[in-house]
Write a protein that binds this DNA or RNA. Structure first.
Ligand SMILES: Nc1ccn([C@H]2C[C@H](O)[C@@H](COP(=O)(O)OP(=O)(O)OP(=O)(O)O)O2)c(=O)n1
Ligand SMILES: [Mg+2]
Ligand SMILES: [Mg+2]
Length: 866
DNA sequence: ATCCTCCCCTAC
DNA sequence: TAAGGTAGGGGAGGAT
């Protein structure tokens, strides 16, 4: 079991997909203010779900352990409650300095391996892609100086945690984190809980001391599904046996009671469990259709994007491109002239302070010193995510990406305000107008953040300039910005972190080493939690330590580029140039929230909406694409309902792509390609938790049209006078596809974008459509069967062949058989059909017949009669 | 060597 | 309730 667990956890560790990092503890210490009414000194996570594992160990001979555990837990619970009330009395007379940081753990396999344990130690943020399924996690307490901790204990489900590991971790600035990893035991009502105590060393009256500080946090796990309970018992057994052996020693030390905050653990419990309460043994999901999902809302995609903050910031750059088209490409790509000279470069990085919050509270000065966050929901039990928190709120440990219920737990008086995307857009415009006014070389990073290359502005002191710009921004927008000034983009960016909030910071080139030496590697842009962890395993935590590793070694471990980046950044070296904005390389849309399908029809409807969306975006950008990638998030086998309401939970990420010969932005073509890509997944639609469509190999729409006209179907495929070069093209394209499963279908799917012209030999007549642009006229024709070049036909990939065969009513197969002189050759290509031949074949036939009966045949058409 | 696909990682 | 998107960089490993 433990082997299995750790292996799977390790692999998920590698598979991490998404991370919402809070701006982890920047080095600035904005506020040393005490929070007068922060009562909670401790944290306890309560998780509600049973879990399952992939282990083949299914039957449980230990079924009576359940009641045993429950009894034991109750007893301990009561003890704990008694003492908890005492300590809370003591607390109320103190000025607590502890600010908790909430951690979300979606559950993960029981971590018996050292590696996994290590991995857990230092993570804040969301883990669900790392640790699936089970319920081991840790507690993090910030601003809890280890020097003041006399004693630490942790409890799981009212029992002492098995072999807890306590780690002291210092973070940039003067902040200390105490990490409390633990193994969590589930207990009564499927509500595993975890608590940790910190007993102070110093005199409680001391400034900064804490009394019986208790971290109270909630453990998040993917919810239970009744079908999991069998396996979960196995987990119980394993942990229980461990517990037994640890129990005595800990009990000898004397137990402390473990206070539960019912509101906390109950909340997550209600959320995840309600659906299975009625029928604990049945497959979970009830008939209820959540209103806000693909099931409840036929207009889901549109509504979803309208409300998604990540969609807003993710699409902002394209809007910026449109608004300032002259700045977005070409012209100002670099300033190698300056580099060539001896002049020292001078870069300013500027970033709005807690942007989303600043914008919505600018007309409410009374809120400036109150903790405020922007979030869709104010529900203190909810799983809505904090988008941005102002600096007073950050003192409580509140961070972007955190669930609102955890933010509220950290700071009950936290004020939640709704989004105002229009206002963000406006302020961003003002922001960039001001930047462009002061500097020609502006590289937009995001709606609230940009680099300026002010090297050329020799007359001006960069620091004064930054100050002037910040002032102007503040005056124009009512929001503050911070700036970093340095010799390169890297250092300027780091300087901004130091400067925040509402400040600026210049890092002199000579002080770079000094600045970096103690800096945590996580602070370097490009080092996220995965790289951080890998480096930590090598005992590297600061840039100074990172510098001790040779470039060769780094490149060997992390790859050529990444290794070089690490080597350079740890030395403050950054050769990027401001203003190098290339034309976009890909356009896509994805939805990983609220995605639930009952049947294929739901799915197809959603895919169509997605295609429409992507098509519009392509047209909006004036590009067309040739490579299409469909991404699917599939619920892991043993993952229950996600912790996050309507979330995707713990998923495998799958993708298939295909490349077509001619770029397109046509929604019908997209739809067809998408349908075919979808067929590759062979997935139960009920397991789909997320879908995305991405288009790459982009060409300007204008260019694409020219190509289209030049390579009309006629000249390409059927004209007797077609040049050998053109014919070579199509041949090589066809050949390219041979044997490449994932590309095969694209040929069929893309052909609508070809320019068809009537051919004298056309069999089925013509299909002439015009979209009014003159360039996309489509006149299709299918050549007579006897005109096909069998050599080319046979070289076609199987799927294409089968689709083509549909168009010819199945006669193509016969023809091939004849041409090969083989009687039994049908099987030869039938075996290439996708694993679900019936479905796929039907669908493809539909496509061919309904949308453009001749689109496919066009390819084959050019295969002239031999 | 260079490309391609299928991912993973990162940042906002 | 709640809206976990988007795009670029890059690595592993296979095909050519
Ligand atoms: N996980 C995240 C990160 C950011 N944002 C949004 C809200 C932020 O206001 C905006 C800008 O991101 P920043 O990283 O610049 O964060 P802030 O501006 O909020 O704070 P800071 O003062 O640290 O820049 O992007 C978000 O919605 N979710
Ligand atoms: Mg900002
Ligand atoms: Mg920013």
């Amino acid at each position: 079991m433990s082997m299995d667990s750790s292996r799977s956890a390790n692999s998920t560790l590698q598979n991490s997909k998404r991370s919402f990092n809070s701006n982890s503890s920047s080095s600035n210490s904005y506020s040393k203010k005490k929070k007068s009414n922060q009562k909670t000194l401790g944290m306890a996570w309560g998780a509600n779900s049973l879990s399952s594992s992939r282990s083949s160990f299914r039957s449980s001979p230990f079924s009576d352990f359940g009641s045993y555990m429950i009894e034991k837990n109750r007893k301990l619970q009561n003890q704990f409650d008694a003492e908890a009330s005492n300590s809370s009395q003591a607390d109320s007379s103190k000025k607590p300095i502890f600010h908790g940081v909430s951690i979300f753990v979606d559950g993960f396999t029981v971590p018996s391996s050292q590696e996994l344990r290590q991995y857990m130690l230092n993570y804040g943020g969301r883990f669900e892609n790392y640790f699936s399924r089970h319920r081991v996690t840790h507690i993090i307490c910030s601003n809890l100086p280890d020097s003041k901790i006399k004693n630490r204990r942790s409890f799981s489900g009212g029992l002492p945690v098995v072999k807890p590991t306590w780690v002291l971790d210092s973070v940039a600035g003067n902040r200390l984190l105490s990490w409390v990893p633990y193994q969590l035991e589930q207990f009564a009502n499927n509500q595993p809980t975890l608590s940790a105590f910190f007993t102070p060393k110093s005199n409680p009256a001391d400034e900064g001391a804490f009394t019986n500080a208790i971290c109270e946090v909630k453990l998040e796990t993917d919810g239970p599904s009744a079908s999991n309970s069998e396996e979960s018992q196995k987990v119980k057994v394993v942990e229980l046996s461990n517990l037994d052996e640890d129990d005595k020693s800990i009990e000898n030390n004397g137990l402390q009671p473990c206070p539960e905050q019912p509101s906390v653990s109950v909340s997550s419990h209600c959320f995840d469990n309600h659906s299975i309460k009625g029928s604990p043994r049945s497959i979970a999901i009830g008939p209820l259709k959540p209103q806000n999902s693909t099931l409840g809302d036929p207009n889901f995609v549109e509504n979803y994007f309208k409300n998604s903050r990540l969609h807003f910031i993710g699409t902002w750059k394209n809007r910026y491109r449109k608004r300032f088209p002259c700045l977005s490409n070409g012209g100002m790509t670099s300033h190698s002239d300056v580099l060539a000279g001896t002049q020292k470069t001078s870069i300013i990085h500027i970033d709005m302070d807690c942007f989303f919050v600043s914008v919505v509270i600018r007309s409410h000065p009374e809120l400036y010193d109150k903790p405020v966050a922007v979030c869709h929901s104010d529900n203190p039990k909810g799983t809505a995510e904090i988008s941005s928190a102002n600096y007073p709120a950050r003192d409580y440990g509140i961070r972007a990406g955190m669930f609102v219920r955890d933010a509220k737990a950290l700071c009950p008086q936290l004020i939640i305000l709704p989004y105002n995307f229009e206002a963000y857009e406006e302020v961003a415009d003002q922001f960039y107008n001001i930047l462009h006014k002061h500097c020609k070389r502006v590289q937009a990073v995001s709606c609230d953040e940009a680099f300026l290359d002010v090297t050329d502005l020799e007359g001006k002191d960069p620091q004064l300039l930054a100050s002037a710009i910040r002032k102007e921004i503040c005056k124009a927008t009512g929001c503050t910005a911070s700036a970093g000034i340095a010799e390169n983009m890297l250092m300027a960016r780091l300087a901004t972190r130091t400067a925040k909030p509402n400040g600026q910071c210049y890092i002199h080139p000579e002080r770079v080493d000094e600045y970096l030496d103690q800096l945590q590697i996580k602070a370097l842009p490009g080092i996220g939690h995965v790289l951080e962890e890998k480096l930590k395993n090598k005992n590297v935590r600061t840039c100074g330590q990172l510098r001790m590793i040779s470039k060769d070694s780094l490149q060997k471990d992390f790859g050529i580029k990444t290794g070089e980046m690490l080597w350079n950044y740890s030395r403050g070296v950054d050769n990027r140039l401001v203003g190098m904005i290339q034309e976009s390389k890909s356009v896509g849309a994805e939805v990983n929230w609220g995605v639930r399908f009952r049947d294929l029809q739901d799915t197809q409807h959603f895919l169509l909406d997605l295609c429409k969306e992507v098509s519009l975006r392509l047209q909006g950008c004036g590009v067309q694409g040739r490579t299409f990638t469909l991404k699917i998030k599939r619920r892991r086998k043993d993952a229950g309902e996600p912790v996050k309401y309507m979330g995707c939970g713990d998923c495998e990420n799958l993708s298939h792509s295909t490349t077509v010969p001619l770029a397109t932005d046509d929604v019908e073509v997209l739809q067809r390609i998408t349908k075919q890509l979808f067929g590759f997944f062979h997935i139960d639609v009920k397991d789909i938790r997320g879908v995305g469509l991405q288009v790459s190999r982009l060409e300007s729409a204008n260019t694409a049209r020219q190509v289209l006209e030049r390579n009309s179907m006629k000249s390409w495929l059927t004209s007797a006078s077609a040049s050998s070069k053109e014919r070579l093209d199509i041949n090589s394209i066809a050949k390219e596809r041979v044997g490449k499963d994932s590309e095969v279908k694209s040929m069929a799917g893309n052909l609508k974008s070809f320019h068809f012209t009537p051919v004298e030999n056309s069999v089925h007549g013509t299909n002439n459509t015009s979209n009014g642009e003159g360039c996309s006229n489509q006149i299709s024709s299918v050549p007579l069967l006897c005109h096909l070049d069998m050599g080319v036909v046979e070289s076609l990939p199987s799927e294409l062949l089968s689709e083509l065969n549909e168009i010819y009513g199945g006669k193509l197969v016969d023809l091939i058989a004849k041409s090969k002189g083989q009687s039994e050759n049908n099987t030869g290509y039938l075996c290439f059909l996708p694993p679900e031949p019936s479905k796929v074949a039907v669908e493809q036939a539909e496509i061919s017949c309904n949308s453009n009966p001749f689109s496919l045949s066009g390819t084959a058409v050019e295969m002239k009669a031999k």
